[in-house]
Amino acid sequence: SNLVYDWVKAAILFGVVNTVACLDHLDPPQPPKCITALYVFAETHFDRGINDWLCKYVYDHVGGEHSAVIPELAATVATFAITTLWLGPCDIVYLWSFLNCFGLNFELWVQKLAEWGPLARIEASLSVQMSRRVRALFGALNFWAIIMYNLVSLNSLEFTELVARRLLLTGFPQTTLAVLFVTYCGVQLVKERERTLALEEEQRQDKEKLE
């Protein structure tokens, strides 16, 4: 609820400012992406203006294509070092920065592992639907990692521990599996929405080329 509240607050504030800016024929940053649609650390942000600035001048500048482990590590450390200074250095911000920095790098490590010969051949042997199901399962786990990591900064370490206990221990395994299943279905819906939007954008570009 804390994350949803924070997103709604940001969405309303950005919505008002964006509307006024558009009336002045400006091109303001897009509103924040809904927290329920986040299952990738690289897309986790509430303030797109700050995120765009950090990506342009720090993260992308240092990390390049974000395909190499060492440059990615340097890029994430530099980005979250600046973010820590921006938010105000304290223990909870240090922990939040470390966890999110780790999350970004861990995603790349998993991607590199998936590209490893034997695993790549296994995925290639799967159907498109099954490959998407496997990726959605990992996306569901990643979704809760994002939630837990950001609860640290938006609430407290004690509350985060309470949520973790509720998810992992209370009612295990029924409750845990039920939550993961619902999250998995949500990730599938988000991925389908992203696929649909990508197809619509591709069709729009094709029409523009024909015209």
Rank of each mutant, 00 (worst) to 15 (best):
T79P: 00
L13V: 11
V190Y: 01
I92G: 00
E161W: 15
I147T: 13
L177H: 00
D27R: 10
V110G: 01
W86V: 08
G15F: 14
C185P: 03
G64T: 03
R204F: 10
H25M: 12
L199W: 05
G88S: 01
I70G: 06
T36N: 08
L54C: 05
R195W: 10
V62T: 06
L95R: 09
A164K: 08
L197Y: 03
V20A: 10
P29Q: 12
Q174N: 06
L23R: 02
M130W: 03
F80N: 00
A164N: 03
C22D: 07
S127I: 07
A21T: 06
Y94D: 05
A114F: 01
N100P: 02
A68F: 11
V17F: 03
Q203N: 11
E200H: 14
L169Y: 12
W86M: 10
K33R: 15
L168V: 07
K112E: 10
P89D: 02
L210G: 07
Y57V: 12
Y184E: 09
L141Y: 11
S67L: 08
A75I: 11
H61W: 15
T160G: 11
L3T: 01
A10F: 13
F181A: 13
W144V: 01
P173S: 09
G64H: 02
L108P: 00
Y5C: 10
A81S: 14
D6M: 14
L180T: 04
I35T: 05
L95W: 03
G103M: 12
A164I: 10
I70L: 15
M148I: 06
P31T: 06
F172N: 01
R165E: 14
N142L: 09
G63K: 01
V110N: 11
A198V: 05
D91W: 13
F159Q: 12
W53G: 00
P118K: 04
P118F: 02
Y39C: 01
L54K: 06
T175D: 08
A37Q: 15
I122C: 12
E123V: 12
F14L: 07
F46T: 12
A81E: 10
Y59G: 05
P173F: 13
Y59S: 03
L85K: 01
A145I: 10
Q203Y: 02
D24A: 15
E65Y: 04
L167Y: 02
L108Y: 00
V20D: 04
A10S: 12
I12E: 14
L197Q: 10
L137D: 00
N18E: 10
L169R: 05
G171Q: 06
A21E: 14
S131P: 05
